[in-house]
Design a protein around this nucleic acid. Structure first.
Lengths: 204, 204
DNA sequence: TTGGTTTTCTGAACAGTGTTCATTATATTT
DNA sequence: AAATATAATGAACACTGTTCAGAAAACCAA
């Protein structure tokens, strides 16, 4: 024994190699260019080999999404550190919105693209988003406990805060704000202003 | 004379035929199944023929998007009729959110999918969304004028209202609310609740 | 070391996509 | 009827995800 364990380790390592190549490709070339064939070429294997380690592309994208969420979690833990829950909520929202603007391809995979969620038919819970969402819920829970915001239901508040943030980011990423004749910078400013205004609204 | 005009009419008619087939296909089979080849088969023409009337698929999807927006405009004009601006704003938001739930494929094309916005590189303004957005802006403008809401900037308010609505709809359509262990019905209820809570927040 | 077994890998194919272009068919004009 | 202009298409190109029979490599026992 030890040998079957090494086999297992090799399998995990290979999955890691595939996923890392996919992540890199995602960051450098975007979703469109991240094909099984391109990933295979990058790790110098045949495209068919990838299917020995991942059931399909969706499963691979699910792991890539996991990596992306680790980056968001890290950003939260770095930038949303205030002791004041309401101030922390502001930090969370701004971090979220800026993460979307600075990592459009990752944001796509995390919150917009269908593919990675297709594995959910077999899975019970979407664990990739668990930590990030938990971070938000904890903050809102603190706010409500100290009666700092006008929401009383944690879940409704979390849903709303997240939706406001996601709405702003995703409409921008998908160019729908072109319905207003504003230049790029004005839109970016308006998004941050909208976050600030929303925070003012919910403050008690 | 007469004959070149008829040619022109024929050209427009053909574009219409192609677009109608695409719309139908979109509603019946969804975005994924709406391929140039499938559309061509439906109208009994060769795939190459479509390219005599549409520069590329994006341009065709832009027209399909236009049709989708007419449906949304119609829904607004039917359901958001209250004389009270704040009540009308509620009707607008609920109509929007329900439109998304009931017409997921159309909503995708209108607000999520990249493709139809690619024509914007040549175009100056996104006229498809103009009327719907105008309807919202008018309502918010009325609200602000009568000091019924806590926003003072029309554009920021419109951006925020829209983003809240879109955030709720799109996160739901893309299954991201699976991060909370709620069943389908609870999520639907939570979305409408979030709209109501948001309206409460912005009311003066 | 040899031979047999198991695991790992790949080339080729399938069915699909958007798109282009030379060629054919159809109208229109002379 | 012949020449010209317009409209339509078949076939190809370069992609995509995915499958599978067969080749290569790794492992194990004699």
């Amino acid at each position: 024994m030890g040998i079957t364990e090494r086999k297992e380790r090799d399998k995990v390592e290979m999955r890691q190699r595939i996923m890392s190549a996919a992540v890199q490709m995602f960051l450098e070339e975007g979703y469109e260019k991240t094909s099984i064939r391109n990933i295979a070429e990058k790790i110098e294997y045949s495209p068919a080999t990838i299917y020995l380690y991942y059931k399909d592309k969706d499963e691979l994208l699910y792991d890539v999404q996991g990596q992306a969420f680790e980056k968001l979690d890290q950003a939260f833990r770095e930038k949303a550190t205030s002791k004041d829950p309401i101030k922390r909520l502001e930090q969370i929202m701004l971090t979220y919105v800026r993460f979307g603007k600075n990592n459009p391809e990752l944001y796509d995979l995390m919150f917009i693209i269908r593919a990675p969620m297709n594995v959910m038919k077999e899975k019970e819970l979407w664990d990739n988003g668990h930590d990030s969402f938990g971070f938000l819920v904890q903050c809102i829970s603190d706010c409500i406990e100290k009666k700092l915001i006008r929401y009383d239901d944690v879940m409704i508040a979390a849903l709303s805060v997240w939706s406001m943030g996601h709405g702003l980011v995703s409409l921008d990423l998908r160019c729908r704000f072109k319905v207003m004749d504003m230049d790029e910078d004005s839109i970016a400013a308006a998004i941050e202003k909208s976050v600030q205004e929303y925070l003012k609204l919910i403050k008690n």
